[in-house]
């Protein structure tokens, strides 16, 4: 009897706690920077809509099947004293079975139809909008993103600028292992696979910074392979493009000049700064690094301290970091680091 009580109380509690959790959480808890529930673009919106269909079907089943289940448990549990009663023996019912099978199929159709529609929509830029689409090539590297705009002749890294209201036609590739390109508020993900080209598209309806992250496990710093999508009004975007097309700013101050000199003594093996003679490709393009807000593929704010540490202790700043100064025999003293930082920050 006591155990029975406990069970009753417990089930009711579970139910209430569940309800409480859901109601508490639903509106507020899923609006983070990477929420897939509160979105800012038509692709993600379409995907969220299908999700709501699945939620509707599941909730319906949860309530009906769950209701029957709970009712059966309460109604038919052994009452004290009748522990050994043998109830009426039933073996099955064809009508019930068939009915439920048909009902299940119908419920699946409720999901399947919007799912199919959405699939075709999200898989490719709609034909009538192909003209206005901006082409982007996103290449995953351990552990950062390279972004090229083939039609605009721009290469950048870790911060992808896009204009709002335009479809962005993205070609996703990988330079080494598997990665996945994902900006939850704008669109679902697609894998970056070496030797294969995958496509997806997205569009931002509102200007803003959208958090992205690599979601295919890719080694030590998979957790640290983030990026930002900067959705801008058309004018702002055009301004950014004009600036990106330029060469890196020429060093001016004494520090910058020395920074550039140090840069050319090793950093250039891996990094490009357009017009400065540095043409390495193992690491991110730094031509306009000074105008980026983040460092280390989105894991640090780009400021003097972080940059200094990044150059001095790349491995500590990011586990497994492939920025390896020993490989180019570089030992940079404090003064040189300071100048490097000055130089990099000048690259607006």
């Amino acid at each position: 009897m006591n155990a029975m009580r406990m069970i009753q109380v417990a089930f009711i509690t579970v139910f209430l706690v569940g309800l409480y959790l859901v109601s508490l959480v639903w509106p507020g808890a899923m609006n983070g920077p990477m929420s897939i529930m509160e979105v800012n673009g038509p692709v993600a919106q379409e995907q969220a809509t299908v999700f709501w269909y699945t939620v509707a079907v599941s909730s319906f089943l949860l309530v009906t099947v769950g209701g029957v289940f709970l009712y059966a448990i309460f109604r038919f549990r052994a009452k004290p004293g009748q522990d050994f009663k043998v109830p009426e023996q039933t073996h099955g019912s064809a009508a019930v079975e068939i009915g439920l099978i048909v009902a299940s199929c119908v419920l699946l159709l409720v999901i399947a139809v919007p799912n199919a529609r959405a699939l075709f929509y999200v898989s490719e830029v709609p034909a009538e909008r192909k003209q206005e689409a901006i082409k982007v090539v996103a290449i995953g590297h351990q552990w950062w993103w390279e972004f090229q705009y083939p039609d605009l002749g721009i290469t950048t890294a870790n911060e992808l600028h896009i204009p709002i209201g335009k479809p962005i036609d993205i070609e996703v590739r990988s330079a080494d292992v598997l990665h996945a390109f994902w900006v939850p508020r704008l669109a679902g993900k697609i894998d970056a696979i070496p030797g294969q080209i995958n496509r997806m598209w997205m569009e931002a309806t509102d200007p803003g910074k959208y958090q992205g992250q690599c979601t295919e496990y890719c080694g030590d710093s998979h957790a640290n392979m983030r990026f930002l999508v900067m959705a801008q009004k058309a004018e702002d975007f055009d301004g950014w493009v004009r600036n990106e097309k330029k060469d890196g700013v020429k060093p001016k101050t004494i520090e910058e000049v020395n920074g550039h000199r140090v840069f050319m003594s090793g950093c250039n093996a891996c990094h490009t700064v357009k017009g400065s003679g540095a043409m390495g490709t193992k690491g991110p393009d730094l031509s306009h690094f000074g105008s980026r807000t983040t460092l280390g593929s989105g894991i640090y704010v780009s400021n003097k301290d972080n940059l200094t540490n990044w150059i001095k202790f790349p491995k500590q700043m990011k586990p497994g970091n492939l920025m390896n100064l020993e490989s180019v025999n570089m030992v940079v003293g404090d003064k040189d680091v300071k100048d490097l930082v000055a130089y990099l920050e000048s690259l607006k």
């Binding site: 379409e46 999700f51 079907v57 699939l119 939850p184 669109a187 697609i190």
Partner: peptide, 24 residues
């Protein structure tokens, strides 16, 4: 009870359009 809930989320993944978001 628990398996059904797990099954329902399985059905949510099976709707591929939205699994693009849920995956990983």
């Amino acid at each position: 009870a628990m398996f059904s809930i797990g099954g329902f989320s399985g059905i949510m993944h099976s709707a591929a359009a939205t699994d693009f978001q849920q995956h990983d």
